[in-house]
């Protein structure tokens, strides 16, 4: 028993570690933002695994984008609600 291919979570950890030199050279505030991007990718580890994509980093990037877009949608809703309040 045992698996040949690393799990999606293992893969994401390895990928994040491979960017450690890049991360080190970033400002602290940027480092924290980068960590959040990887955390966003980890939220979709199950889907990344299910996708069985030959280039999983593309799926990881899409997961980051997905979380970013969710945040945009949330903020847009708040802005719209606020502007409606103002107009009202």
């Amino acid at each position: 028993m045992g698996r040949t291919i690393p799990s999606a979570n293992q893969y994401l950890i390895q990928e994040q570690e491979s960017f450690s030199r890049f991360r080190r050279a970033l400002r602290r505030s940027d480092q924290l933002a980068l960590d959040e991007l990887f955390a966003a990718a980890r939220k979709h580890a199950a889907a990344l695994s299910y996708a069985s994509h030959a280039l999983p980093f593309e799926v990881a990037l899409l997961s980051m984008l997905l979380e970013e877009h969710k945040e945009v949608m949330r903020l847009r809703q708040i802005v719209e609600a606020l502007s409606q309040q103002q107009d009202g």
Partner: peptide, 16 residues
């Protein structure tokens, strides 16, 4: 094939 391995070598679906 590599693709078959990638597709088949998975466990159960686990979400956060």
């Amino acid at each position: 094939t590599a693709y078959e391995l990638l597709r088949n070598d998975q466990g159960g679906l686990v979400y956060q």
